[in-house]
């Protein structure tokens, strides 16, 4: 994608988006609702026309082609399984439209059904299927097309939590087996982290950062990315440098390697890089949330609430005074005005 823009009325949905997806890659478009990720996906599919810019698939410019001439396949958020056709007819629909020979149709439908464990359901109608089964029909219907690009629009968002975990693993396995170039839209950062070869984080109609999942997690390009990726989100403390210490409201942290920046800056640090112990910054415990494998402790450092990952048996009570040590190698700095990372 080169310089793709799209507005709805006066509201820009995409603002000059550039993106390269490699052959066979699983690319995740991640962002909050309304960030333009679905519009971008629909533009790749040809369901939306870009106001400006160009889209090429495998070197072929498809910008002005209809969806059916792009050799793409798409899985919709609502699955869009045809209710008046059996599962078999649904999976074979695209092949019928392409006038694939009957024998080949049957073989490919059977293959796709086997790949998604739908063999026993082929004669059923969608109304007789569960949400998870319908989702698999939608995936089978797309995969059977042997398209150049597989587009997925939040395919797991309508499943309940347990099923979503299962379907996530299934989709990842499927991609490993068929190695189809996939562009996957989600607002769920856990999905993005666990499935994506790379993640393109979108905000406000632009791709803010596009990188490997761990790189996005460890080195967020902006405060927005740090706050969107990770659960809990990255902690942010706004302050300024003074000598070689970071000074914020009620906080003074002496730094081993101070950032080269003047003026207002933001310190970003993740919950797992803070340690409650005998030394460090003084803090007051606000809330302790035991989460099974660990406890999430919210404390107030100076004037700022900060979340810390702690052992589940930490045994703290609200209002207790504690000390928080910071893993200084893991601190990320951002410009307070623009939010962009200082490297």
């Amino acid at each position: 994608m080169r310089g793709v823009s799209r507005s709805f009325g006066r509201t820009p949905a995409l603002r000059t988006v550039d993106l390269d997806v490699h052959d066979g890659e699983f690319m995740v478009l991640l962002g909050p609702s309304g960030c333009g990720k679905t519009t971008l996906l629909r533009t790749i599919a040809g369901l939306e026309r870009p106001d400006a810019g160009a889209i090429a698939i495998g070197g072929r410019d498809v910008t002005s082609l209809a969806p059916r001439d792009r050799n793409i396949a798409m899985v919709f958020q609502s699955y869009a399984v045809f209710p008046h056709m059996t599962v078999r007819a649904n999976i074979g629909f695209g092949l019928r439209m392409r006038r694939t020979p009957k024998a080949e149709q049957a073989r490919r439908v059977a293959d796709a059904a086997a790949l998604l464990g739908l063999e026993a359901l082929l004669e059923r109608f969608p109304g007789q299927l569960s949400g998870g089964q319908r989702q698999r029909v939608a995936v089978a219907r797309a995969i059977v097309m042997d398209a150049d690009v597989m587009l997925m629009d939040e395919p797991l968002s309508n499943l309940d939590a347990l099923l979503r975990l299962q379907a996530r693993a299934d989709l990842k396995r499927l991609h490993g087996e068929v190695k189809r170039t996939t562009i996957y839209v989600t607002h769920d950062q856990v999905e993005a982290m666990s499935m994506g070869d790379r993640i393109a984080v979108m905000g406000d109609g632009v791709i803010v950062q596009c990188d490997l999942p761990m790189a996005v997690y460890d080195h967020p390009a902006t405060q927005f990315v740090g706050g969107f990726i990770g659960s809990p989100p990255m902690n942010f403390v706004r302050g300024a440098m003074s000598d070689s210490a970071f000074v914020a409201e009620g906080v003074r942290l002496r730094l081993e390697r101070p950032p080269r920046a003047g003026g207002e800056i933001v310190m970003g640090v993740r919950a797992e890089h803070l340690r409650i112990g005998a030394e460090g910054l003084p803090a007051d415990v606000l809330v302790v949330e035991p989460l099974g494998s660990h406890a999430l402790v919210t404390v107030r450092v100076g004037g700022v609430p900060v979340k810390i990952e702690a052992p589940v048996d930490i045994g703290l009570r609200p209002d207790e005074r504690i000390h928080v040590a910071v893993d200084q190698a893991r601190i990320r700095w951002m410009d307070a005005a623009t939010g962009t990372a200082i490297r």
Partner: peptide
């Protein structure tokens, strides 16, 4: 979305 799905499937 049903019609759009059909369009991505060759219609």
């Amino acid at each position: 979305e049903l019609e759009e799905a059909a369009q991505t499937l060759g219609c």
